[in-house]
Structure formats: structure tokens, C-alpha cells
Design a protein around this nucleic acid. Structure first.
Lengths: 217, 217
DNA sequence: GTCTATATAGAGATAGAC
DNA sequence: GTCTATCTCTATATAGAC
């Protein structure tokens, strides 16, 4: 018996976060709680009180673990998010035969995850990335690194499946961007439909580029 | 003499906003200033003081014109943004021969606009849409309406160019989503490159669907 | 490592004068 | 339509005890 192909990867990472609230240090719990809250509400929409409450961490520990305050917490949370997401993406490719299949399964799974969150979650980086792109150097750097991890994950896996490097990079950008945009629309309309449309379009696009440029062994 | 094909549409709408600071009522100036600020900094990142300052509007007039406060201002600003953007999109199609050409020119122009803003602007709706998707009904409704205007603009124009209705809708979603995602990446990396990559990919995709489904008269 | 108390600033919002 | 004063709330951050 296996869990449904589409829902498992993100669900697993979400579960890991929750479990860890008991096992990990309060420092780690703060980072993970912040990661979730920043995804849902953005940087300006997330308060320190909210973070320690959700992370079941003592408020008095904030400035002990993070001397530079909210910014530092957010920066570390963003990097945590990037690493986690890149892992999930890579894991998704392992079980699939083709790139098109892997991408489609990933996006469909994502749409289920977002639906399960009541359309509160989704787009782990985009809010903070846009909010802080020109207003905070540290956070902007963190967002760049996080997105780079994600783009690299796609690029690596596409390359491994035979896509030329240049094409893999272009596709990675196209996949990442359209997923982010699809998430926005799905959150806005409280519906899986936009993201599922993106899944189908990406499937087609990846398949087309695959046929055009790869010799299939 | 005409302004450069790529930069004109958004630039024109931006200019209209600035000019209007002198001509229009303070109510209108508040809405337009809010439209800009919400695009750059999101809902939680935008303050009422900032809005009246940028709109050169008297602070004392806020609750006279907008009895329901910040939410009401944001809601009207979002609708203004949606209408403006839909107009720009439609205008862009008028001058072009093919759908692929129109989309590509639009996205390229957008990337120039974002660059010209120092990567502070771009993605007029996405921040507020994501921030308020499940936290404020009024704002969520406004964002839905605004996105609907944009999706409709694309869909109408694509239909007029011969795309079957279903395909036009799917394409409109794909275009809107990947542009939003491209904007996020361009803002994050302070570079036109991601958005230009999206422009090329969309060009290919629209062309491919055009060839596959249309009889060219 | 964590607690409490507090500093300080800024937000959105309201009332009443003009 | 606009101004000023003020209320209330919450935010981040700091200091010092334990």
C-alpha cells in the first residue's frame, strides 16, 4: 500500500515540521514556525509573538538565539524553506520515469497541499521575496539563495534526464515561475483549478521540449 | 515618432498616475497612491500615513472618503489596479499581428518597467491577493474581481485571434501565472532575465498552440 | 536559556472643531 | 472636506533578574 502519488511529498515535509516541535531545540522550533507563518502571511504580516506561540517556544529565548531579531529569524527561516523545498522537488523526480511526469505529479501534489491548508499556505518564498526585494539586503540575499536551491533542484534533475544545460535552466525558471503564479491564483480563488491548469500546461511544455531536443535511449 | 514598442504601455499608465496627482480629487489620489504602494509593499507593508503622503492628500480626509478605513482603500485600489492593467493588456494586443507577438511584447515591456522602478514595482496584485486570500473577505473578493478582469482581457484577445474558448482560457491562466512568477524572480534577483526567459517561453507556447489548433486565414 | 517588565515607536481609528 | 488631538492596540526591542 502506498499513499496517493500526488499528496505524499509535501505532506511528509509538513508532518516532519509538526513532529519536530517536541524533539527539536526551541531555536529550531522558532525557525520552523517562522517558515510556516512567513509562507502564509508574509514578512510584515508575521509577528514575533505569533512565531513563539506557534513554535511553542519561550518568548524570552528569542533574542538569546537570534540577537538580530526578526530579520535574522526570517532569514534563517527562508533558507530552511528553500532547503526543504529543494529536497521535496528532488525526491519527486526520483520516483518518476519522465520529466513531464515528475513535474506534473509535483504540481498536482502541491495543489492538494494548498487545498488541505484551506488555501492559507502555498508559495513558501514569494511573499517574503517580493516584500523585501529592495528593502532589506539580508533577506533579499536569503531569498536569492533559497530560490537558487529550488531552481538548481529542477535544473539538476532535468539535466540528469537528458535535457541540455541551457534548456534545463530555462525550463527550471519556467516551471518555478508558473507554479508560483498558479499558487497565487489558487489561493485567491480558493480552488485547485488554476494550479491544475498549470500542471497540464507544464506537462505539455516539458514533453514538447523533451521530444524536440532529446534522443531517447 | 512613437515610443519604443516594448516600454510604452505600462509607462503610459504610470505617467497617468503621476499627472493625476494634481488634477484629480484627493479621493482619487489616495486610491492611486495606494495602488502603487500596495504593489510595492503589500497590504501589511503599507501604512495610511504613507498613502496620504504619496498621494499628497490631506490625512484628515481619509475617514471622510473611506469610512471603513484601510480595508476600503485597499479594496478600491485593487479594483483600480485590475481595471488599469486589463486596459494595458488589451491595448497591447491592438498593435500586434499575432498572439505570440503581443504576449512577448507585453512581457518584455513589463520587464523594462520593473527594471525602471529599481525592481521595487511589479506584480500589482499578487502581494495583496496572497496576503488576504483567507484573512479578509472584502479584499479577497476585490482581488478575485481584479484577476478576473486580467484573465478576461487575455482570453478575449486570444479568442478574437482565433483560439477556441477553452484554449484561450487555459492560455490566459498560463500567461498570467507565469508572468506573476517571473516578476517575483526578477524582483528577487534585480534582473530582467527571469522575466525575459518567461517571455520567450510564452512566445513558444502560444505559437505552438496557435499552430496546433487554428486555421490561419 | 528563559522570565518579566518596560522602553519606544508606529499602526489604525475616532471625536469634535473649523 | 479637512485639521488636530487623542485613544487604543500592537509591534519590535532591551534590561536585568533568575
Amino acid at each position: 500500500m502506498r499513499s496517493t502519488a500526488t499528496s505524499s511529498p509535501r505532506a511528509a515535509s509538513r508532518k516532519a515540521k509538526v513532529d519536530s516541535l517536541r524533539t527539536l531545540s526551541s531555536r529550531e522550533r522558532i525557525i520552523r514556525a517562522a517558515s510556516d507563518l512567513l509562507e502564509n502571511n508574509g514578512y510584515h504580516g508575521t509577528g514575533l509573538n505569533e512565531i513563539v506561540r506557534k513554535g511553542k517556544a519561550p518568548k524570552g529565548s528569542i533574542y538569546y538565539h537570534f540577537p538580530r531579531g526578526k530579520k535574522q529569524i526570517a532569514a534563517e527561516a527562508i533558507l530552511f524553506t528553500g532547503r526543504t523545498l529543494a529536497e521535496v522537488i528532488r525526491a519527486n523526480f526520483v520516483k518518476r520515469q519522465t520529466a513531464a511526469e515528475a513535474v506534473r505529479a509535483y504540481v498536482d501534489g502541491l495543489s492538494l497541499f494548498i487545498q488541505a491548508s484551506g488555501f492559507r499556505s502555498g508559495g513558501p518564498l514569494m511573499l517574503v521575496a517580493s516584500e523585501t526585494a529592495t528593502t532589506d539586503k539580508l533577506l533579499n540575499q536569503s531569498c536569492r539563495k533559497a530560490y537558487a536551491l529550488i531552481l538548481e533542484a529542477f535544473k539538476d534533475k532535468l539535466s540528469a534526464l537528458g535535457f541540455p544545460a541551457a534548456q534545463a535552466e530555462v525550463l527550471a525558471i519556467g516551471i518555478t515561475a508558473s507554479i508560483d503564479g498558479g499558487i497565487i491564483l489558487s489561493r485567491t480563488y480558493h480552488s485547485r483549478k488554476p494550479l491544475r491548469t498549470i500542471a497540464k500546461l507544464l506537462d505539455k511544455m516539458v514533453q514538447a521540449m523533451d521530444l524536440a531536443s532529446n534522443r531517447h535511449s
